[in-house]
Design a protein around this nucleic acid. Structure first.
Lengths: 267, 267
DNA sequence: AAGTGGTCTAGACCACCAT
DNA sequence: TGGTGGTCTAGACCACTTA
């Protein structure tokens, strides 16, 4: 039997809603890896009993985690920990799309892998001590054979202590799926800043662009539960035939919008 | 008394959830302008009685509209039609931010205004007949005095029949606020595609950039209820000191995330 | 004080999935 | 067939706003 009911009553300060408290406990259990990615949680009635709340309250907590794409409900089957490998999530954190045609996943090619120390700036953004150990690696992403993006990734060593070049080369799915299944770290959010700039000579060469072509630079901070930083990434994108796609105010996790086609064919 | 209960029973095909049907009716009433922007809807108990459903069901419909930022709840006060002029929504559709420092609204300067006909491409994207009448106008946006973006906007004439240069110059708030209060059209979603390219000579001049500098081009289609197209827009952004900001998987309308700072300080 | 939304509960019934 | 999530209901109580 799951035993996490104890802190519930203690945290009842009188103002925090019960379902928020339940959500907090569920999130903590998830962060602690109590259930593996893709694994089913106990049923809602069981969870409700465990926490000592009604099903309605339990459902409201789960509702929010589903809206945040942390959990997935399957009617008749159960509630599961969302997986980055599932088709529905493959594009959630990859917004570069062909200017026409369907989304496809890029094929990565590992260009470099090394270990180093976090710069002061990196340490600040990743919440590390100055000079803490990090992995640095870079990938060239191809879509249908064309070089589209160049990623430079900084990952704290302590998150993935046994990461090697080989592990990265042999991964089957996305990097975030790797983080999830191998290191128990679930990226649930990312904050990105984009700008246009002239490509450096080496970048232009790698991306099969003319010298001094314009490229899209994306700087991303990936976060896990409780907004804890996981990874720092800088992508340089060749936008001659691909674009960065953003849907503002679109339906995300609420499963609303059923019946209306999402009209993703944009300007 | 509000009278929209009739279609409810008719649409009960046995599979559509009641709350979805209620949501559909509410959305239609909103699209018809039954309540003005900023105006309060009838209370939840009144609406529930009107539709002949329980409060719980009514609330679930409203929940989704609140998550989509169409409605706003204020405890003790009522449920209101969201307004683009409200501070909380000012930045929802404006994602260009200073590379450091706080978000501020840009000051627009109207550069051109004319009427014309939709090109075939524009007509297709805006759902117009070929050659239908449109307004075309462009704005230069400044932030703290610096030229940051150049907008070229195409708006169907039939959406804003009496739009003039003067109306645009005298608007007090954002353009979407103008659409909302003057034309009863509520932009609730936008789909954007971004790419980097070299600035045209005139663009570089206007944006105070060197010739052949890199700029960020944003092509946006703005949509209202039921994903009906409203406006087509092309923005060219000087990203020397400003960036495009995107929050993937961040908390949006659910009012979740209370207690955790959003850590918007990204890479 | 009256009216509003916010929370929490308990229970019934349905749709779906696995077996 | 039994268990799961999905929907819908009815009612109690609370927190907040407004006058």
């Amino acid at each position: 039997m799951v035993t996490m009911a104890a802190p519930l009553a203690a945290a009842l300060d009188g103002t925090t809603p019960l379902y928020r408290e339940v959500k907090r406990l569920l999130t903590r259990a998830l962060a602690d890896g109590r259930w593996a990615p893709g694994e089913a949680l106990p049923s809602e009635s069981r969870l409700a009993a465990t926490f000592g709340v009604s099903i309605g309250t339990l459902r409201k907590a789960v509702d929010e985690l589903v809206a945040e794409r942390v959990l997935v409900r399957r009617q008749g089957s159960g509630t599961f920990v969302a997986t980055h490998g599932a088709s529905r999530y493959l594009f959630h954190f990859f917004h570069v799309v062909p200017e026409d045609g369907d989304r496809v996943l890029p094929e990565p090619e590992l260009l470099a892998f090394e270990r180093g120390r976090a710069t002061p700036d990196e340490a600040a953004k990743l919440g590390l001590a100055a000079g803490e150990r990090v992995h640095r690696f870079s990938n060239l992403l191809r879509i249908a054979g064309a070089a589209v993006a160049l990623d430079e990734i900084v990952l704290p060593h302590r998150i993935a202590p046994d990461l090697t070049e080989r592990v990265l080369r042999e991964r089957a799915s996305t990097i975030y799926h790797l983080y999830q299944v191998r290191y128990g770290v679930n990226v649930v959010r990312a904050v990105e800043r984009l700008r246009a700039r002239i490509a450096a000579r080496a970048e232009a060469r790698t991306l099969e662009l003319e010298p001094s072509a314009a490229v899209l630079e994306i700087r991303r901070l990936a976060l896990t539960y409780h907004d804890r930083p996981v990874e720092l990434r800088r992508s340089v994108v060749n936008t001659l035939h691909h674009e960065y796609f953003a849907d503002i105010g679109g339906i995300s996790g609420t499963s609303a919008g059923a019946g209306a086609d999402t009209g993703a064919g944009a300007a």
